[in-house]
């Protein structure tokens, strides 16, 4: 069953000279429980596409269906979002940040506390709930952010370059952690990144987008077995997949 369906989506930015085409005829079908990574040159509209999947921005043409229903506005029960640079609320503790979506819905205090504690444990931050964002490291902040995205238990999790601001080591660890969290929750994940290594390491399928106007120019199935290990990065298969994505991106620029 497909969790996400994007049907011939196009987007044109209204500009001075009749508009700038940003996204062109994008069709994507993601099966439930799959991990899909989108890569592409800067400014190709990856983030715009993700915003549309989240219902945060409206496309000019085409339809987006998530969990069997059209997406028109943000619906945190179907789609959780993890943004670039954590973007936690600095005036709330880690636990309160995770509870935020539940608090908006008026979930009773005890329920949401219990739920947030579970999420905190899931992302490996047990005991850090009372800390404020400025007291957490970059990686820990992103863990809290993932917990916030998952707290309403949506079937789909969208991630916009979540580890871009982290150093190389933390980034590798966080990728690995994300796969662990994903394998226990079985969410459908759409993940945007600039890192080809990260793309191959995480994905079931990599979608390559062209420069503006953004189109899907290649779909690469990542056949590496799961669970993924760091050692796989040194294999020929890994290198070949990475190379193929790189060739596609280079062609578009």
């Amino acid at each position: 069953m497909s969790a996400i369906n994007v049907d011939r989506l196009s987007h044109v930015y209204s500009g001075t000279e009749g508009g700038v085409p940003a996204l062109q005829d994008i069709t994507i079908d993601v099966d439930a429980g799959k991990f899909v990574v989108i890569v592409g040159p800067s400014g190709c509209g990856k983030t715009s596409l993700l915003m549309m999947l989240a219902g945060l921005r409206h496309q000019t043409r085409g339809a987006i269906t998530v969990a069997g229903k059209r997406i028109a506005d943000p619906d945190p029960e179907r789609v959780g979002v993890v943004f670039q640079e954590a973007s936690l609320f600095p005036w709330l503790s880690a636990l309160d940040n995770i509870e935020f979506p539940l608090a908006l819905r008026g979930t009773p205090r005890d329920d949401r506390r219990r739920r947030a504690e579970q999420m905190l444990t899931l992302v490996g931050l047990e005991g850090f709930g009372a800390r404020y964002p400025h007291e957490l490291s970059g990686g820990m902040k992103q863990r809290v952010s993932i917990a916030r995205g998952l707290v309403q238990d949506p079937p789909v999790l969208l991630m916009d370059e979540p580890f871009a601001a982290l150093d190389e080591q933390t980034r590798m660890t966080m990728g690995h952690e994300l796969l662990r969290i994903w394998s226990t929750t079985r969410k459908t994940v759409v993940f945007i990144t600039h890192s080809l290594t990260e793309a191959v390491y995480l994905a079931d399928e990599v979608l390559v987008m062209s420069a503006r106007p953004g189109r899907i120019i290649d779909r690469i199935e990542i056949t590496l077995p799961r669970p993924r290990t760091y050692e796989m990065m040194a294999t020929d298969t890994f290198g070949r997949l990475r190379e193929r994505i790189w060739q596609q991106i280079r062609k578009t620029e």
Binding site: A54, L56, P74, D75, P76, E77, V79, V81, F83, E85, S87, F89, W91, F100, P101, A103, L104, R105, R148
Partner: peptide, 26 residues
Amino acid sequence: KSDHVLVARSCGATRTQILLRIYVPS
């Protein structure tokens, strides 16, 4: 921060909730 408003919207916040929970504390 516009990022914070975006996060709140993605969590399904209404205009009033954005005002009270994002604008006021910020």
